[in-house]
Design a binder for these strands. Sequence first.
DNA 1: GATTTTACGTCAGCCATGTTGACTTAATTT
DNA 2: AAATTAAGTCAACATGGCTGACGTAAAATC
Lengths: 164, 164
Amino acid sequence: MADVKSGTNPLFLREEELRQSIELLFFAYRDFTDGPDQILKDYNFGRAHHRVIHFVGRNPGITVSELLEILRITKQSLSRVLNALVERGFVEQKAGVSDRRQRLLYLTDEGKVLERKISHVQQQQVAKAFREAGGEAVAGYRKVLEGLINEADRDKALSRIMKK
Amino acid sequence: MADVKSGTNPLFLREEELRQSIELLFFAYRDFTDGPDQILKDYNFGRAHHRVIHFVGRNPGITVSELLEILRITKQSLSRVLNALVERGFVEQKAGVSDRRQRLLYLTDEGKVLERKISHVQQQQVAKAFREAGGEAVAGYRKVLEGLINEADRDKALSRIMKK
DNA sequence: GATTTTACGTCAGCCATGTTGACTTAATTT
DNA sequence: AAATTAAGTCAACATGGCTGACGTAAAATC
């Protein structure tokens, strides 16, 4: 009991630290998505469109099924969002060369402009946090986030992130 | 050009690092919410219910308006979720003592059980990532996430997280 | 060459969770 | 006594998930 009150119970401390870290992630993510959300509003796009724009921008020529795997949503959900982006000229589809069933996805020039506009805001925000925290903290941040990614497809996810 | 190709252009490097860090946060958050989501399914609850359970659990006696401020949703959105939790006996409301207009929120015993069940899974996941990354990395992780919180209400958010 | 599988698409309907706007009630403050 | 505040409610709508069923063209397999 004295342990709990004085805060020297390691289990208690650990749990409290974990709770704080979990809440921290909630608040950080909440504000992390805020900038993009504001811009997307002007285009009548939502977060779902942003995710597509982001991953197509980062992976030109990505196939529909690869995108589905990353986003972990159904093709019916994706289609709504993707069709809107194609119809409004932000994304274009080209038939695959080796496999013509595939629809390879690319940002149009207009899509690239929007992508840069959105990611710029987000990059500024992250850059500020990085500058304030310092290089060592950034390395720690990345290490922990990597560890939070599901072990089953961590390697796949990380190689997608770090590639090129 | 040689700079870009060899990767020594600091601006290019910076942007690439930022992009990676942004994507990392996306993947980490995606998997971070997965464990709770699975448990909540069994109760026919969703992420919105989880957020309420979490913040009521962490802040016994929190008022509705405080909760609204944290979650940044409308009271109409909250009411749907909160009513379900009250009706099904996970949350209870008591009139405020100094201000009887307030409805102070508490987890019931059943609510506490569910809260612990969910947070346990999430804490295990975070604890594992922390162990693998090491104490210094954890400090960095926290520092960066703090910096990602909107400056306008960072102090308020942090004092809520770290309090007690 | 015929059959099966794969990549992708579509239609239809449902559910969770967010939104706005208008209005009510009870309690507190001015 | 009047105004403000905390909370709730009704209604309607948007977004973005989901399942299930079915279609088409291209590739892979038997």
